[in-house]
């Protein structure tokens, strides 16, 4: 069953065409990695799908019964957050807010969801710590826990391991893979780390402004473009 259908998407970024004519579907349980060189429009496509940058043309359609409020998002961290006074619990809980426009306060369910996701990501003991005092890896887990609170069907991640050391990155990939396998939540991840992408993802979307490849990982590895892009690195 498809959750999301992207058709002929083109996005402008700073007066340049950053992504042109991108089409793909996200099905239930998919783990899709968007790969490509720097400046190939990976993040821009994700932002276009999420409605953070205006589309030049094309459509993004959530397929009923999926809606925009069923998705979770792990953005790249902003410089504002480095000095932000917020407890881990406050940040994670804020992921529960989007489900209902008229919802102003958290109910018991929300609090349980937040605690459950913190437990899943092994950050429960950090609950009352300040977000700004955490390490980079811990911060990413907090943001992932928040994303899981809002994700019912689909989670979108923008370079989730940027700035993390290799051990912590591996752990992060394992957590994401586990979420995908165990809970069936579909994953769409932008990554510059193509080795891990082909290791964990079952589908690859390769961009270079235009769409170069979309299909299963094994097809990608036997395609010319896949061999060329991955080959030089492994």
């Amino acid at each position: 069953m498809n959750l999301l259908s992207v058709k002929n998407l083109s996005v402008m970024y700073d007066n340049l065409l950053a992504a042109e004519n991108i089409s793909f579907d996200v099905a239930e349980g998919d783990y899709i990695c968007i790969v490509g060189e720097n400046g190939s429009g990976k993040s821009t496509v994700l932002k276009g799908i999420l409605g953070l940058v205006p589309l030049k043309s094309g459509t993004v359609e959530y397929i009923y019964p999926v809606s925009k409020t069923d998705i979770g998002y792990l953005p790249q961290q902003t410089s504002l957050q480095k000095d932000f006074p917020a407890s881990v619990y406050e940040v994670v809980l804020s992921g529960c807010l989007n489900a209902d426009k008229t919802k102003w306060f958290y109910n018991k369910n929300d609090k349980q969801t937040a605690l459950k996701n913190m437990e899943k990501l092994e950050i429960l003991e950090l609950k009352n710590k300040s977000y700004r005092d955490l390490s980079g890896g811990q911060q990413q887990r907090v943001l992932l826990a928040r994303a899981l609170c809002s994700a019912k069907k689909l989670i979108m991640l923008d370079e989730p391991v940027t700035g993390l050391d290799p051990m912590v990155s591996d752990k992060m990939y394992q957590i994401i893979s586990e979420i995908n396998k165990k809970t069936g939540i579909s994953v769409v991840m932008v990554s510059h780390d193509v080795e891990s992408a082909v290791k964990y993802a079952d589908k690859i979307l390769h961009l270079d402004t235009k769409m170069q490849f979309f299909g299963t990982t094994s097809d990608y590895l036997s395609s010319d473009i896949g061999r060329g892009f991955v080959g030089g690195r492994i």
């Binding site: 932002k47 953070l52 409020t69 998705i71 998002y73 953005p75 902003t78 940040v91 992921g95 928040r146």
Partner: peptide, 10 residues
């Protein structure tokens, strides 16, 4: 805390 996340999730 995070305008992008808020906007993206509705």
């Amino acid at each position: 805390f995070d305008e992008a996340f808020s906007k993206a999730t509705g």
